[in-house]
Amino acid sequence: MRFLTPARLAVSAVAVAALAACGATAPTAAPPVPAPATEAGPPTEPADAPEPVDAPPVDACALVSQQEAEKLAGTRLADAVPGGESCSYTGPVSGPLAQVEIYVGDGAKKILDIDRDLDHEFETLSGLGDEAYLEDGAVFVHASGVWVAIRLVRLDDPAAYREPLMKLARTVAGRI
C-alpha cells in the first residue's frame, strides 16, 4: 500500500493543474463492455463479483439458556441481558451474588489472551471443540471457527463449579 507523502501530493497537484490548464480531464475507467449476444438471448451486463458471505453471527444468549445459567450458578437469575456479542444473567438484588456471562467471537478470545498475559492457570480440555481451556470461574471453547467464553461470578470456592462449567462448555460447543 502506497502512502501519499508531501512530495507525491505536490506532484499529483501539479499534474492535475496541468491537465486542467490544457482543458483535459483525468482519465476515467472504461465502461463495462456488454457480453456478446448468444442464441440464448440479448447481451447481458457483466456480473459483479459475488460479495463474500460472512458466517452469521452467533447469538450469545441462544448459546446458554436461562435454565442452564441458573443450573451453573446454583441460584435463580434474572432474564438474559444481550449486549452485542455477549449475554449476561445476573442474580437477584436480594442475593446471593451470582452472574453468568457469555462472550462470543473476538471478545471471548481477547479475555483468554488477557488471562494468559496475567499468568492465570489453565487446564486444557480435550475432546471439546477444536480447543478448550478451563480456569477458575471460566471456560473458553473454540469450535467451528468461533470462540466462546463462559464466565461465572460467585463467592464460593471455584472448584465447586469446575464440573458444571465443563458440562456447559460441552453443550455450547455442540451448538456452534
Rank of each mutant, 00 (worst) to 15 (best):
Thr25Pro: 01
Ala138Lys: 10
Tyr161His: 08
Phe3Leu: 14
Glu70Thr: 11
Arg8Asn: 04
Glu123Ser: 05
Gly84Asn: 13
Gly74Ala: 12
Pro6His: 11
Ala37Leu: 09
Glu68Gly: 00
Ala49Leu: 14
Ala80His: 06
Thr44Cys: 08
Arg8Glu: 10
Arg175Thr: 13
Ala47Leu: 11
Tyr89Leu: 13
Ala24Trp: 12
Val148Tyr: 03
Ala37Tyr: 11
Pro50Glu: 02
Ala108Trp: 05
Thr38Gln: 15
Glu101Phe: 02
Leu134Gly: 10
Ala173Asp: 07
Val139Glu: 02
Asp157Met: 05
Pro96Asn: 08
Ser144Ala: 09
Ser144Asp: 12
Pro34Tyr: 07
Ala55Thr: 14
Gly23Glu: 02
Glu135Ser: 07
Phe122Asn: 13
Ser126Cys: 12
Ala20Lys: 11
Thr44Ser: 12
Ala35Leu: 03
Val93Ala: 11
Gly74Gln: 06
Ala40Leu: 15
Ala173Ile: 02
Leu72Arg: 00
Val33Thr: 10
Ala49Asp: 11
Tyr103His: 13
Lys110Val: 13
Val58His: 13
Ala143Lys: 04
Leu134Arg: 06
Leu19Glu: 04
Val100Met: 00
Val139Tyr: 00
Leu155His: 14
Asp117Cys: 11
Lys167Cys: 06
Ala10Asn: 14
Arg116Asn: 03
Ala47Tyr: 07
Pro52Ile: 07
Gly83Pro: 03
Arg76Trp: 05
